Lab assay of single mutants.
Amino acid sequence: MKATFQVPSITCNHCVDKIEKFVGEIEGVSFIDVSVEKKSVVVEFDAPATQDLIKEALLDAGQEVV
């Protein structure tokens, strides 16, 4: 499964690193693409990962998800 999250609070590479760390810890996540320019995060994943778990990880990383 693939999901795109709009994350307007992404401003720098530190944000990218933190997002990759938090989302990458979720079992089932196979790909993460964070774009500072587009302020988006694209995640490819399989169970047990879910969109809700990914959104929670983004929030835990200090990001706003819309």
Rank of each mutant, 00 (worst) to 15 (best):
45 F>L: 01
34 V>R: 02
41 V>K: 01
46 D>N: 13
64 E>G: 06
64 E>S: 10
40 S>W: 12
48 P>T: 00
17 D>K: 13
10 I>L: 10
24 G>T: 07
5 F>W: 06
7 V>F: 07
23 V>C: 03
48 P>M: 02
26 I>T: 02
41 V>H: 01
31 F>L: 08
36 V>I: 13
39 K>F: 07
2 K>L: 08
3 A>W: 12
13 N>G: 14
20 E>S: 12
52 D>F: 11
13 N>A: 13
51 Q>F: 15
1 M>L: 08
24 G>N: 07
28 G>M: 01
1 M>H: 12
48 P>F: 03
9 S>L: 07
20 E>R: 15
6 Q>H: 14
45 F>D: 00
7 V>C: 07
25 E>C: 07
24 G>D: 02
11 T>H: 15
57 A>N: 02
23 V>Q: 00
22 F>E: 03
25 E>S: 13
5 F>E: 01
35 S>P: 00
11 T>K: 12
59 L>W: 09
2 K>M: 09
62 G>N: 05
7 V>M: 06
48 P>W: 04
30 S>G: 06
64 E>H: 10
9 S>W: 15
3 A>V: 14
8 P>I: 10
25 E>V: 11
13 N>D: 10
37 E>Y: 09
47 A>Q: 07
37 E>A: 12
53 L>R: 13
8 P>R: 11
37 E>W: 10
9 S>G: 09
4 T>N: 06
43 V>E: 01
28 G>V: 04
36 V>C: 15
15 C>F: 08
15 C>K: 06
25 E>F: 08
58 L>Q: 01
49 A>G: 02
22 F>T: 07
24 G>C: 09
21 K>F: 11
3 A>P: 04
16 V>Q: 05
5 F>Q: 00
19 I>V: 06
1 M>R: 11
63 Q>W: 14
17 D>V: 15
2 K>T: 10
29 V>P: 01
9 S>C: 12
17 D>A: 14
50 T>E: 01
16 V>M: 06
6 Q>E: 08
33 D>E: 13
48 P>Y: 02
49 A>N: 02
36 V>A: 05
34 V>H: 02
8 P>S: 10
49 A>C: 05
2 K>N: 06
43 V>D: 01
30 S>H: 11
29 V>M: 02
7 V>Y: 02
46 D>R: 14
28 G>A: 03
5 F>G: 00
18 K>H: 06
10 I>N: 01
22 F>L: 11
3 A>G: 06
57 A>Y: 04
23 V>F: 02
4 T>W: 14
49 A>Q: 03
61 A>M: 07
45 F>K: 00
22 F>R: 09
66 V>T: 10
61 A>N: 03
46 D>L: 09
36 V>T: 05
38 K>R: 12
12 C>H: 10
59 L>S: 06
35 S>M: 06
54 I>K: 03
65 V>C: 15
48 P>C: 03
26 I>S: 01
38 K>F: 14
58 L>M: 06
56 E>S: 13
55 K>C: 09
22 F>N: 05
8 P>A: 10
62 G>W: 11
30 S>I: 13
16 V>W: 08
2 K>Y: 08
40 S>H: 10
1 M>I: 08
17 D>Y: 13
22 F>A: 12
27 E>G: 06
39 K>Q: 09
44 E>G: 12
56 E>H: 14
42 V>M: 11
26 I>A: 03
44 E>I: 14
22 F>S: 07
3 A>Q: 06
63 Q>S: 05
39 K>A: 06
9 S>H: 06
1 M>V: 07
